[in-house]
Write a protein that binds this DNA or RNA. Sequence first.
DNA 1: TATTGTTATACTCTATAACTATA
DNA 2: TATAGTTATAGAGTATAACAATA
Lengths: 146, 146
Amino acid sequence: MKSNQPPPPVGLALRHAHLRAARIFAEELRPLGLENAPAGLIINLGHLGSLTQRQLMDVVGMDKSAMVRQLDQLEARGLVRRRPHPTDRRAHAVELTEAGRRLLGRVLEAADRAEERLLTGLAPERRAEFRELLLVVSELGPSAQE
Amino acid sequence: MKSNQPPPPVGLALRHAHLRAARIFAEELRPLGLENAPAGLIINLGHLGSLTQRQLMDVVGMDKSAMVRQLDQLEARGLVRRRPHPTDRRAHAVELTEAGRRLLGRVLEAADRAEERLLTGLAPERRAEFRELLLVVSELGPSAQE
DNA sequence: TATTGTTATACTCTATAACTATA
DNA sequence: TATAGTTATAGAGTATAACAATA
């Protein structure tokens, strides 16, 4: 039943799975003129509402200076706004503009199509199972013990 | 039972899981003086034996020129050897040296420790399940339909 | 004519550190 | 003294294209 190759380390499989997911997502995003990183930012801002840049860095795992550059570009395109933070005058409250929120809908559709393609090899129940396990391993899920 | 947040797209969860795996693996590799990319090459050469650079590129998802640089460094450290390919005189047959094979053992131990840490949140049966599903999604596994 | 490996270039990401303005 | 954001810099990865040798 098993192949004669030893199973690859989980880390390598995660790398391949992520590379494949990123490739597929990039294809689905192409018509929107967006790349993966800014699309990820938009999705997270959509989920979480207004965030400081520091919080965004933690959420998307992006570097401080890369975050500045990405937000500069998104702001120049009118998709995102930096506002004064209500209580901390050092910080910015970053949020989607109306145009950003409109684009968010199309980005989420692209993400859904990408996910459908990514999980083609799994039956529906196994997809749910995969999602659940992945949330634990990624430490994004409810069972993440931080 | 469920959180009130919508679940993140699987692609984002894969990204987080992979970032976490890479961070943990890097920590386990530090005593060996190796980084993730060359360690991945060594593991793959160990699993698959002698490969051309072209094949290695496909297997590890690395760029043409990055592959040249990585192999140059591994060859300079005496861990890898480029030999004439038996049938294609354009190609190189890349393989581990004896020193490389000795290091491979320690790299695999580091990978095991990293995997143990990575999957801490999952009970043993769920780890096997996760591995199996991930192999399908990564298209590395037996069910990959190319 | 296409492919393997090499080299070169430009662009992006990462990591680091300095700097400012606040806290 | 520490933190949020900005800026600058060096290093690594990615993407491209050109090239030599070979298929």
